[in-house]
Amino acid sequence: MNLDLALLLAQDGIANGAIYVLVALGIVLVFLVTRIIFVPFGDLVAYGALTLAAIQEGQRPGTIWLVPMLAVLAFAVEAASLLHKGAAHRLPRAALVWLVLPALPALAAWPLAGRELPDLLGIVLTVALILPIGPLLYRIAYRPIADAPVLVLLIVSVVLHFAISGVALVFFGPEGGRPRPLIRAMFEIGDMIVSAQTLLMLACSALAAFGLWLFFERSIAGKALRATAVNRVGARLVGIRPGVTGGTAFLLASALAALSGLLIGPVTTLSYDSGFVIGLKSFVGAIIGGLVSYPGAALGALFVGLLESFTAFYDSSFKEVAVFAILVPVLVLRSLVTAKPADDEEDEL
């Protein structure tokens, strides 16, 4: 292997790694705030790419139907819980938050989709359609069992993954979709040719990470999310509602998933079921960072991207094997390095 080749592989690896970084950050974020390992994360990435592809092809994307259906379900769950608590007066607000707001993007997209749209409008519509999915899934599937053990939450996540990738098959069909590249330019840096798409992936990933950092360090809402992650009882005692911070975490996760979908779509053809592997590889990256650290998850995800690209060069059939096999030494190493065993279950009052 010569230097040129290594650089080429590294470039490819970093570009893929940038996507894994986005997804891994989302996985860590959701886990820290809610203790949920959000397995369907990758499916949302696929939803993003497929939605944009459908819009660009002048079709109505499946998410137009899916999101309002989820909104109706979420509102039903919320209404049932409010009535059970005898808080019927909060129903109008619940209808606004869980029914009207999430369905708005779908209503807006309905007349627009099906014609030739400028690229930017298509992207905005896609993000707006994907954004509500995370919080809606959270309200429907996780909120009712928010205090369940981590393992139960994980099993629900796995079930949810199969459900929504099945739904994706219904709404998007078995064929893959591939949106147009957002930008086509190529740059020559020395001997290397770098596509603008790669640079865009890197820039977006870095910007998203910086944005998250600002949110957590500077805003009271971000600090409330951190507080929930650090000490759930303490957070409740200052009036931070775990349901609200959980919803916020899922909203951010949705945004990261939509962004990842937009970025990876033009590079790899995604079909209804290919999100899972993206999510799984990002999860490996997050695990390398210990599932508790954002910088750790970002580095781990970049490492996964590089590992994948180099293994693919030697033998492409091994690229998946290598990524998942690396988990074993990583976990052994982590258990040796970590001084005290991490409690997987915090005391819940």
Binding site: I220, A224, A227, V230, N231, V233, G234, L237, V238, I240
Partner: peptide
């Protein structure tokens, strides 16, 4: 109606200022 629990339940890896600020969360 506020409780200062026996276990204190502080936000351990956040700063003193942030801990205090989060006390005002209901008035954010």
């Amino acid at each position: 109606l506020c409780l200062v629990p026996e276990a204190r339940e502080l936000f351990g890896d956040m700063s003193v200022a942030d801990n205090l600020l989060l006390g005002a969360y209901p008035f954010r």
